[in-house]
Simulated assay, not measured.
Amino acid sequence: MAIDLRSEFQAPAVDAAADAARRVIDALVRSGGMTDADMSAIADRLNAVADDLEAAAPPVADRLVDMWRGDGITRHDPVAGPENPIAPPLEYSAVDSRTIEAVTTLGLPYQGPPSCVHGGVSALLLDHTLGVANGWAGVSGMTAELTLRYHRTTPLFEPLTVTARQVSVDGRKIRTTGEITAGGGTCVSAEGLFIAKHPPRPR
């Protein structure tokens, strides 16, 4: 069963723009200096787009309030946020009442070792996914500890399954585990300790 983790505030045009930006990021990393494209002209075009966006953007304080309004899952986070172009983004499904998973394929923008996912990116995906599993299970909080074990390299260009499960809740302490697998083998496993508290939302 797919989990609708989107905010109730939908913005299809914003999501489409973020998808386009993902394509640009991927194409820029893939091209590097090995392209016949006129990169100076492309830089001018991209700067013109950035100028238009910056001219129309609200003050940061107003945007922060907008990002955190409502009770839904945020749309801006760097892992599953549909309006954040650095997010893959992950789309989660429920395995059971305490477990979620997502399948994603990462490209060159997420590379660390040759043809492999950067270890910090793996940590980002797991930290966020453990947190989402906590929310799905009904008790969430802030990351206090995150312990990772890198079993083998995590490949680019192949489907990755990111899974997390809330294991226990003891007072304000929440313990959650997760892993990234590829081809049926574990690439990275994680154990997290979360504390059931949240900073105040911007107002």
Rank of each mutant, 00 (worst) to 15 (best):
A2P: 14
E8C: 09
F9A: 10
Q10P: 00
A11W: 07
P12Y: 05
A17H: 06
A17T: 06
A18C: 11
A21S: 13
A21F: 13
R23Q: 14
V24P: 01
R30T: 04
G33P: 00
G33I: 09
D36V: 10
D36T: 11
A37W: 03
D38K: 12
A41F: 02
A43I: 03
N47I: 01
A48W: 02
A50C: 04
A50M: 04
A57K: 09
P59Q: 09
P59Y: 09
L64F: 14
R69M: 15
R69P: 00
R69I: 14
D71S: 15
T74D: 09
T74F: 10
H76K: 04
V79G: 08
A80E: 03
I86Y: 08
P89H: 12
L90W: 07
S93K: 07
T99Q: 10
T99E: 12
I100A: 05
E101D: 11
E101P: 00
L108G: 02
Y110E: 04
Q111F: 07
S115A: 11
G120C: 02
L124P: 00
H128R: 05
L130G: 07
G131S: 06
G135I: 14
G138D: 07
M142F: 14
M142T: 14
T143C: 06
T143P: 03
T143W: 05
L148D: 02
R152T: 02
T154R: 05
L156P: 02
L156K: 10
L156V: 06
F157G: 07
E158Y: 00
P159R: 08
A164S: 05
G171W: 06
E179G: 00
G183M: 11
T186H: 01
C187N: 01
L193A: 14
K197Q: 08
R201T: 09
